[in-house]
Amino acid sequence: MDTFLWVIVPYLCLTTFVVGHFWRYRYDKFGWTTRSSQLYEDRLLRLGSPLFHFGMLGVVGGHIIGLLLPQSWTDAVGISHEAYHVVAVTGGLIAGVMTVVGMVILIYRRRTVGPVFSATTVMDKVMYAFLAAAIVLGMWNTVAGSVMTVGGEYNYREGVSIWYRSFLAFQPDASLMGDAPIGFQLHALVAFGLFALWPFTRLVHVFSAPVGYLTRPYIVYRGRDELLGSHRPRRGWDDSRV
């Protein structure tokens, strides 16, 4: 069972994530967009969207540090476990609260503002369910696990993180995850579900973060003969139908 949940399922999701993005980019550049609904409604979005997105940037940063940075490294530079814990929980709580508040505003907006609700696809709703579940479970792990220490203390840096790195190194150690508290297990599973859905949702816009804007010239000139985007050169003959 451990092997299925913590080896097979994650790799299936990772494969879907990678191949799915490649496929989507190859065949659906036109659909690759934020699908913004700001045109319909501005007041709630102005509050909720920056809260959610900036909170999310913090959350992602925290995950990168927590999952990818081995405990031995922070020990080596003299950061004690307690000091790390305090910083991580504080930062995590701030980012997490921002994300949750932003998310609540955005979901409320999506449900109550008529045009926004009409523009919501089934895929959006599925994605929202997974995203919200992952965020809520993540907050639960932080608040209940680390702050209130419900069900004993658990140092994820000695369990989940090592499993995650072993997973990325293609030498997964499923037992580490199997021993983790149920909250972490559910959070990881929901997150992997979200990763599998990712390429088929509007979340792809994450990979379009326009950092190139900082360096490119203001006015872009492009020749007609490039025909990028609108038209790809195709073969000049047709399949035989005989």
Partner: peptide
């Protein structure tokens, strides 16, 4: 507007 490159930032 290149429709394949636009990401809808508005």
């Amino acid at each position: 507007v290149d429709q394949d490159r636009c990401r809808g930032w508005r």
